[in-house]
């Protein structure tokens, strides 16, 4: 196990380097004037061009530039944006919003998804099963963008239950965006649980438990659920990593100042350093949670051994 984790940790490095280099290359190296790109549509004076060229080593080949960036990264320096603010400060300001949003989304995903999935799986082809099947198909098909507007229109404007933008209302303001962000994964969790429960209910050990005369509730909760939840728990774990990096649309529509909206604003204004910094962080979250989940899998399911 220890060796497996060490090997996986080592494998994180090339993927992290590769992904950040890819973004770095797109932001700084595509043909065209990188300083003009950095300045976006604003006019820029020759003196500034000179200083920036010097600071970002823009006369050097791309790999030298990237090496300089990496050296800074290792000493905890993510560089500064166009106005001279450290990228690290920007991340510290915006990351808590995204973490809160992710927590709310994961909560919805786990609770609603699991309940719907278990109810559907217990009685296959029953009314609830078909309801879950149809509603998950519909939910998966609605683009997040559309879902966000529907939620704003319905729960925000028509019913007035939830605030539709900003973080002024504390956790309450995260309910609607959290639900929207969770929707796709929620449907997936429901389906995964349904399949898993239905499959396990037909397993031999469940038949044995029934034959022993155990009450139905005990068979379902103690025997079936515990085993059925393994793939679900691991999916939810991996999803934390995706949600932390995938909230661009939700944060933009609901006006939440998290890293998703920050990276979007930075892409639009071509703040290269901010984009590369935040994207590298997102990729790290994604890989890290995937690793955690793989290890968790072995802990939860003793049949899986990596060594």
């Amino acid at each position: 196990m220890g060796r497996y984790i060490a090997r996986r940790l080592l494998l994180i490095i090339p993927v992290l380097l590769g992904a950040s280099f890819l973004i770095f290359a797109m932001v700084y190296a595509l043909p065209g004037d990188p300083i003009r790109a950095l300045a976006g549509d604003r006019p820029i004076s020759p003196a500034v061009v000179e200083v920036l060229t010097e600071r970002f080593n823009l006369n050097d080949p791309l790999w030298v530039q990237y090496w300089e960036y990496l050296k800074g990264l290792l000493s905890g320096d993510l560089g500064t944006d166009f106005r001279g603010r450290p990228v690290l400060d920007t991340i510290e300001r915006t990351l808590p919003v995204t973490i809160r949003l992710t927590l709310v989304a994961i909560l919805f995903e786990a609770v609603i998804g699991l309940v719907a999935g278990v109810l559907a799986g217990i009685r296959r082809n029953g009314f609830l099963d078909n309801l879950v099947l149809v509603s998950t198909t519909v939910i998966v098909s609605i683009p997040i963008l559309v879902l966000a507007f529907i939620a704003q229109l319905l729960f925000g404007l028509k019913l007035g239950w939830f605030p539709i933008a900003g973080t002024r209302d504390g956790w309450y303001g995260y309910v609607l965006p959290g639900l929207v962000l969770a929707s796709g994964s929620l449907a997936y969790v429901a389906r995964l649980t349904r399949t898993s429960v239905a499959e396990n209910l037909r397993a031999d050990y469940v038949r044995t438990a029934r034959a022993k005369g155990l009450p139905r509730s005990r068979v379902i909760v103690q025997h079936t659920l515990r085993n059925s939840l393994i793939p679900v728990v691991t999916f939810i774990g991996a999803d934390i990593g995706s949600l932390l990096g995938g909230a661009i649309v939700t944060e933009t529509v609901f006006n939440l100042p998290g890293i998703g909206r920050e990276v979007f604003d930075s892409i639009r204004s071509q703040e290269g350093a901010v984009v590369v910094g935040i994207v590298t962080l997102m990729v790290f979250f994604f890989i890290f949670f995937n690793l955690v989940v793989d290890v968790l899998y072995a802990v939860l399911d003793p049949r899986i051994r990596y060594d």
Binding site: I23, I248, I267, Q270, M282
Partner: peptide, 14 residues
């Protein structure tokens, strides 16, 4: 490891 929308966003912006 790069979200689809994010990667496409950067490429289409540049």
């Amino acid at each position: 490891a790069l979200p689809l929308i994010l990667g496409a966003l950067v490429l289409l912006r540049v």
